[in-house]
Write a protein that binds this DNA or RNA. Sequence first.
DNA 1: TCGGAATTTCGGAAAATAACGATATCTTTG
DNA 2: CAAAGATATCGTTATTTTCCGAAATTCCGA
Lengths: 101, 101
Amino acid sequence: MELIMVFKALSNQTRINILVWLKHPHLHFPAEELQDYDPNLGVCVSDIKAKAGLSASTTSDYLSLLQKCGLLEATRVGQWTYFKRNEGAIETLNKLIKEAF
Amino acid sequence: MELIMVFKALSNQTRINILVWLKHPHLHFPAEELQDYDPNLGVCVSDIKAKAGLSASTTSDYLSLLQKCGLLEATRVGQWTYFKRNEGAIETLNKLIKEAF
DNA sequence: TCGGAATTTCGGAAAATAACGATATCTTTG
DNA sequence: CAAAGATATCGTTATTTTCCGAAATTCCGA
């Protein structure tokens, strides 16, 4: 994990929000969208797009940026792509920050 | 402290480096420059400029950005401005990141 | 007070990022 | 196979960031 890539990814309020929303999806997404929510999968792009109020392309860009720097994991299931937090990477990040700074 | 401002400040390798250099100045700056180094003051702009290999204006910009977001503290002494880490703020940052993510 | 050194401020050119719509791809369903 | 929905990719314009040199400011010593 490259610290600078993570910081770039997090220097945008919406991307920070996405990471926070995905920590406890039930607190941030409408119940009907999480009908059959699976913690192993996460939340699909459209639900995140609706919550963020951004276009599909921007939402997709953001999610894949967060994925590229390791903070999110994606799983394709049929026509949907689900994103969830990579808790291991986030823990590593905390350690890295603690020891670097 | 605004998390997003901190992340923007840290999304630049030189600014990350400055923060690391200032953690243990003796490991990163020539001894003759730290002749009368005072932990309460830190390191002056010219020494940081020399280490970073940037122009005076850019160095000054970077340092004041790091100061504005709370990570550094500045003290003017005569014609020199010394910068040191704001350890309290950095600790707060660690906590914020830990609880936010 | 004058010159010079350290730093800051300002304006600008180049590079990077933001965010979109259009288009392409992939998948399911009729 | 065709159509429709979800997502990804691409090309674009607008905004932001990077980094500099020139000019301004501050301070010290002669």
